[in-house]
Amino acid sequence: MVSAATPRDPGPSAAPVPPSPPPRATPVALPFGTRASIFLRLLAIQASWNYEILLGTGIGFCTEPALRLLPGGKGGPAYRAALARHSQYFNAHPYLAAVAVGALIRAELDGTPPARIERFRTALCGPLGSVGDRLVWAAWLPFCSLVGLLLFGLGAGPGWVVGGFLVLYNVGHFALRAWGLRVGLERGMQVAGALGNPVLRYGPQWLSQAAAFTGGAALPLALSRAVGSGRVLLGGVVATVVIGAVLITRLHGRVEGWRVAIGALAAFVLYSLLR
């Protein structure tokens, strides 16, 4: 006689997994000292750059002050896991890396699941690298160099030329870092929309046009000041310009504009010092 199978006792039910807390609608209010520490660390984000993880250690270094606010405080499990997560491979422009630092801090303090943070962190690398290179290295740096060259052509001394270049360039990159950190903290994992900012989208084009205009005014003035009334020197300058134009044409695509602009500025500053 076959007995009817009796249902097994399901036993104690597993404890339900609590859902992840939703992101906060407003950014986490970081203490002023923490924000200041993060910003100062952003200035040294490349100090530990290496070929293996690039900016990875720098990202971890910059996020560390805010990670102390995680449950358990400094040295707690959440702090250690987050710091290890953000010290891995990361590649971006060093100035726009501030966007990633702010966004990752916001995601951690909002309690976003680690798997989502890691995917988000990986996705940030490409856009922050390409946008920053086009805006800073290909546009802002050559423009600032040509402004310094214009100052030389207008009769400024070496100190004013170098000082003018450094002040203008650093105002731009400090502002870019500050904006990146602020927008990252405000938007968190929704920061992608901020990369559509008109300055980031159209800035390279605007700056290239401004650099062309500035260069058109700066080069004749600088050459006029360098040549003076000497015909022999004038012939040498003309020959140098022709040779340089041929080399740049031949090296098209293999030479970067900012290197050419910096080289020209350095040459005229050196000339003004030796004359």
Rank of each mutant, 00 (worst) to 15 (best):
L109D: 13
G58K: 08
C144H: 04
G76D: 02
G126T: 11
G75F: 11
A138L: 07
T34L: 08
V161A: 12
L54W: 06
V162F: 11
L40K: 12
F143C: 09
E118A: 13
L146S: 05
S87W: 04
E118T: 15
L124Q: 10
S130K: 03
S145T: 08
S37K: 10
H93I: 07
A47I: 11
P158H: 08
G163T: 14
W160F: 13
V162W: 15
G73W: 10
V136Q: 07
F61T: 13
H86L: 14
G157C: 04
K74Q: 09
I38L: 01
A138K: 12
R116V: 13
A82P: 00
Y89I: 06
L83S: 10
L154W: 03
R116K: 11
S87H: 02
P142T: 11
R80P: 02
A66M: 08
G148M: 03
G76Y: 06
V99P: 08
G132Y: 00
L124A: 05
C62I: 03
H86D: 15
R41Y: 12
A156V: 04
L141R: 13
D110L: 02
Y95M: 02
A115L: 13
T122R: 02
V101M: 01
L40E: 14
P142W: 15
G111R: 10
L55P: 00
I38Q: 00
A97L: 13
T57W: 12
P142G: 09
P114N: 15
K74M: 09
G153Y: 11
C144Q: 05
I105P: 02
A100T: 03
L124V: 10
L146N: 09
P113A: 04
L83P: 00
L149K: 04
T122D: 04
A123P: 05
F90E: 05
G129F: 10
W140N: 11
V161T: 14
H86E: 14
W49S: 04
Y51S: 01
V101C: 02
L54V: 13
C144A: 06
G132C: 01
G72E: 07
T112L: 04
G102L: 09
E118P: 12
A78T: 15
L83K: 03
Q88H: 01
H86C: 10
C144S: 05
P113Y: 03
P65Y: 08
E108Y: 10
I105N: 00
A139F: 04
L149C: 05
R134D: 15
Q88K: 01
L42E: 15
A78E: 14
L151V: 03
W137Y: 14
D110S: 04
Y51W: 06
G157M: 10
P142A: 13
G153H: 10
Q88W: 01
A103I: 06
